Structures are given as structure tokens and as C-alpha cells.
Amino acid sequence: MALTFRSLIVLALLVLPLPSLAATVEGRARAVDGDTLEVGGQKVRLFGVDAPELDQTCERGGRRWACGRAAREELAGIVGRKRLVCAVQDVDRYGRAVAVCEAGGEDIGALMVRRGMAVAYLRYSSRYANAETAARAEGLGLWAAEWVVPEAYRQAGDAQAVPDADCPIKGNVGSGGKRIYHMPGQADYAGTRIDPRKGEQWFCSESEARAAGFRRAAR
């Protein structure tokens, strides 16, 4: 039986190799949050670790601690201006490469967990379980505080997801039209939800919020 032109096209598509996931992502990095990097312009989620959400707070020494921001700062300090090589393991639902990243032969995820600023994401891998055990035993980072594991924090839905990690400031319009902005780590930040229909919005800096007529929350 003679093959039609359409049949030939279908057969060609069947035998052509499917696009494959890039084996590695390389370059200098910027910390987006405690477990996410931007490497060479591409978002990369560290494999096997989970850090506090950027807007998450913990309690340390009887005081509120912006542990999510602290985790990002820790990751930023680790990567510095080093060149990273990230071995891609998967792609998550947000389109980010999920990868094991190294700089100078050091595993970035292992360092974050060993310093107590992230936990082993055991639902996906036990790769960093020993590092977590050691950090916990020494009371490092999160293990010296009262906190909720990041996954539980997300599932609880106590805080509205930050649409852009670089713009986490919440501009809230209260009763009487009062315009107040809340910084991550402030007392009412987690419970504040942004509704654009009310004129509420996210800001990337305090100066941007003030220019829009918002003032900083008192606590």
C-alpha cells in the first residue's frame, strides 16, 4: 500500500529524537530564595533540599526571625561570584530545572543543609539526610529556632504565595483607604493577602511602595 504524504510526515516525527533535557546548566548564579538559583539566566531548583519560604518567619531566642530571607542570604553567600555546574535531574511544574549544583567541587545543597539553613527533602531524596542529622545534632541555623518545615508551611496556606521573589513587599489597603506596606518578617506579613481589585499590590522596594502612597506598617 502506497504511503500518503501525511503518513510519511507522521513516520518521520515518530523516528525523530525527542528534545532532551539539558544535562547541565553552568554559569554564575544569583540566589532567588533559599533553594532556588538563577544560573546563566535559567531558574534552577536545588535537588533534594527544601529551605524556608522567602516570606516565612521563625522564632529564635524569643524573637521573630526572618528565616526565609536568612536562607536566601546564606545561599547567596555560598555561591558568591563562583561559577556553578548544575547536573539537571528533572524539571518541576514551574518549569525550573531541578539540579545538583556544585562550585569548586562543593555540593551547594549539602552546604545549605549542613549549615542548618535548609532541610533534606526526603520525599524526593535521602541524599542529604546525613547532613541534616549532623546540623540538627549541633543545633545549627534552623535547628536553634522554633519553626515549621517549609512543606508544611506551604500546605498550611498561612501566607499568600509571592509571585516574584524579588518583589515580596505587600501593599495593603485597609479600612478608610489606609495604604500600608508590610515587609517580610513583620508581625502581620504572613496574614496579609493582596487583592488587586482593591488597589493592593506587590512592591520590589520600600521606595517604590512609598512613591505609590503606602507607608510602612508599625510592626
Rank of each mutant, 00 (worst) to 15 (best):
Asp33Thr: 04
Ala70Leu: 08
Arg216Lys: 14
Asp188Lys: 11
Asp164Pro: 10
Arg197Glu: 03
Gly68Asn: 10
Val49Ala: 07
Asn172Pro: 01
Ala187Arg: 15
Ala211His: 10
Phe214Arg: 14
Arg96Phe: 04
Asp188Trp: 15
Gly105Pro: 01
Arg154Thr: 03
Val173Pro: 13
Gly185Asp: 06
Gly174Asp: 07
Lys198Ala: 12
Val149Pro: 13
Ala120Pro: 02
Pro52His: 02
Ile194Gly: 12
Arg179Glu: 07
Glu38Phe: 01
Ser20Gly: 11
Asp50Pro: 05
Ala23Cys: 04
Ser175Glu: 13
Gln186Thr: 06
Lys43Arg: 14
Tyr181Asp: 06
Val162Tyr: 08
Ser125Trp: 01
Gly139Pro: 09
Asp195Gln: 12
Ile108Gln: 06
Arg219Asp: 11
Leu14Ile: 15
Pro17Thr: 00
Ala137His: 04
Asp158Pro: 04
Ser7Gly: 06
Lys82Pro: 02
Thr24Gly: 07
Gly213Met: 02
Ile194Gln: 03
Arg69Cys: 05
Thr57Gly: 12
Arg136Pro: 08
Ala22Phe: 06
Leu84Gly: 12
Leu75Ser: 03
Gly171Ser: 05
Arg127Glu: 07
Gly157Leu: 00
Arg69Met: 13
Glu26Ala: 12
Ala212Arg: 04
Gly139Glu: 11
Thr24Trp: 05
Lys178Met: 06
Arg123Ser: 07
Ala190Tyr: 00
Thr24Tyr: 01
Glu59Val: 14
Ile194Lys: 11
Leu11Tyr: 07
Ile180Ser: 08
Ser20Gln: 11
Gly68Pro: 03
Ala135Cys: 01
Ala23Trp: 09
Lys43Glu: 13
Ala99Trp: 12
Ala110Val: 04
Asp188Leu: 14
Arg96Tyr: 08
Trp65Lys: 08
Asp164Ala: 01
Asp50Gly: 02
Gly27Arg: 10
Glu38Ser: 06
